[in-house]
Every structure is written in C-alpha cells, then in structure tokens.
C-alpha cells in the first residue's frame, strides 16, 4: 500500500478550493496520482485514454439538447409559464413539493428517466418556478432568481437520489448485494432496497420542509434587499 497515492486527492481539494479550472485540476490530479503510484507516463496516458473511451456514455445527454433547444426557440419556456399561471392557487413551494414527490415516487418505481436537468429542470421546472414566484412576490432580483434556480436543480437531485435506491433492480442495490455476497454475507436485494425507505421518508420530510418555506424565504430576502437599497 502506498500513502503517496493520496497526492491526487490533495490536488483535487486544493484545485477546487482555489477555484482553478476544474477540467485542468482533474486531469492534473490524475497525472499526479499515477506518478505518485510509480507508473510511467505512457502507462498513465494509456489508462486515461482507455477510461475516457469506456466512459463516453456520460455525454449521451447531448442528444437531448437539439430537442430542448428547438422547442425553447419555439416558446417552450413561455408555454411552461403560461400553463403554470393557469393554476391560480399554485405557490412556488407547492410546485417544488409536487415535483419532488413525483420525481421521488417515479424513481422508486425505477422510472429514473422521468426527469433530469436538461430534460425537465431547465425547460419546464425553472420557468414554472420563476413564473409562480413572480406572481407571488413580484419581480425577482438576480440573487433571488439564482437561488431559486439552484433550488430547482437541487430538488431534482434529492428526489432522484433518495428514490432510486428503494427500487430493487437499481444498479446500486445490485452492487451492494454482490459486494456483500463476495464477502460471505448472503442478503436479499429486497432487504437492501427496503432499508432505503426510512432515509427516503426522511429525505422527503427534510427537503420538503425547506422547499415548502421557499415563498416566505424569497419574500424575506426581497424585503431585505429593498431596505438595503433604501438605506444606500
């Protein structure tokens, strides 16, 4: 074992803390890790190239972009706003709460693709959230708008993460089951999936409570910005 292998971790932490270009930091950390582990440069580059080719599937999301881009050009976001404003009693908090519930329950049923940042968050959830927020608290200052958008993205992540693990055929459940089996513990995948439920419920309550308060928080923040502006 080789403690020098941790050099790469140090490069990553330092690089992100200094806000250097993340792409450069990560590639530099890979090179540093390989060198620290005593590999020669050619071997490091070959490992890098091989892993890159094998992981190209991570860019397949690019294929959603022409569809979303074309529809946005033709008024998708405007239509999302129009549609949501027809629901006169919908607050931003309720909208996000409904989205979180849908996302989490769908993921629990294995339907992890019924959502995502390019597919639903950017073209649908964000314009709807901004429209309901503007209806509720008036025009959104830049800072409030940024936070609301970030919360939309976070709500998609939380709903996905703490739903998918309850689905028994999900990759993570099978990964855990095969790992435990390799180490001499025979357990049912269903047992692992069901023990994801308490955390799933906790996630819904914890994040749901934050999301439900978002209208009050936005109003308070706008009030604070106004008083600051009035004083200045």
């Amino acid at each position: 074992m080789n403690e020098w292998a941790l050099v790469g971790v140090g490069v990553v932490v330092l690089g992100f803390a200094l806000r250097l270009n993340a792409l450069l930091v990560v590639v530099a950390a890979g090179l540093a890790t390989g060198i620290a582990a005593g590999m020669d440069l050619q071997r490091i580059l070959e490992l890098t190239g091989g892993a890159f080719l094998k992981n190209r599937f991570l860019m397949v999301f690019v294929l959603t972009l022409p569809v979303i881009g074309l529809l946005e050009r033709n008024g998708l976001r405007e239509q999302a706003e129009r549609w949501v404003l027809g629901l006169t009693r919908l607050s931003t908090g309720r909208l996000l709460l409904a989205y979180q519930a849908l996302r989490q329950v769908a993921a629990m049923l294995g339907l992890t693709h019924l959502g995502g940042h390019p597919q639903t968050v950017r073209p649908l959830l964000v314009p709807m959230a901004e429209a309901t927020a503007t209806r509720g608290v008036g025009p959104l200052p830049e800072r409030v708008r940024e936070r609301l958008r970030a919360m939309c993205a976070g709500t998609d992540n939380v709903g996905l993460f703490f739903g998918e693990d309850v689905f028994v055929a999900f990759g993570a459940v099978l990964l855990m089951q095969s790992f435990l089996a390799q180490h001499g513990h025979a357990v049912e995948p269903l047992a692992i999936a069901l023990w994801g439920l308490p955390t799933a419920i906790a996630a819904f309550l914890v994040h749901g409570a934050r999301v439900a308060r978002i209208d009050h928080r936005m109003a308070a923040e706008i009030e604070r910005i106004r008083t600051q502006a009035a004083r200045a």
């Binding site: 993340a22 792409l23 990560v26 890790t33 390989g34 892993a51 992981n55 991570l58």
Partner: peptide, 21 residues
C-alpha cells in the same frame, strides 16, 4: 467545458482505483 467534466472525473476514478487511493 463543464459538459466534459463528468467524463474526466470518471477517468480520475479509474486512476485512483489503479493507484490504491
């Protein structure tokens, strides 16, 4: 360039594993 970041991070994960991090 952020679009490429997940892919490059997966590469780093492979190097971490090979080096015994």
């Amino acid at each position: 360039w952020a679009a490429l970041l997940p892919l490059v991070l997966a590469v780093l994960g492979g190097l971490f594993a090979a080096a015994g991090v």
